[in-house]
Amino acid sequence: MGKQDLLPGTLDMMVLHVLTRGTLHGYAIAQLLKQLSSDVLQVEEGSLYPALQRLERNGWIDGEWGLSANSRRARFYKLTADGKKHLAAERASYREVSGAIARVMGMA
C-alpha cells in the first residue's frame, strides 16, 4: 500500500488530536502523525507549519519556545481549552461525514 495524501481539512483535526497527548514540537507532531497512521498518511511537513500558525491564531493551541531532547531550540505546542472544544466538534462532524460516505459506498 502506497502513501496517501491527506483528505482536505483533516490535518488541523489530526494535529489537535495528536496534541491531546501533551506538549509537542513540530517535528514530534509530524513523526507521531506518521507513526499513528502506520506510515500510510504522508504529511508534507512544510505544510504543517502554516497549519500550526493557523491553529495558534485561532487560539486552539498555544506555542512556546523551549529546548528539545537533543537540546535544540524548538517551539512546543499545547492544546488550549478552546482547542479541546474545537477538536470535539471536528471529531463529531468528521464521524458523521465519514459514516455517511461509508454508507454511500456500501461499506457500512
Binding site: G46, L48, Y49, Q53, R72
Partner: peptide, 16 residues
C-alpha cells in the same frame, strides 16, 4: 523570522 527558525529546527531534526 521565528517561523523560519522553527522550520530550520525541523529540517535539522529530520536530517539528524
Amino acid at each position: 523570522r521565528l517561523l523560519r527558525e522553527e522550520m530550520d529546527v525541523h529540517l535539522a531534526m529530520l536530517a539528524d
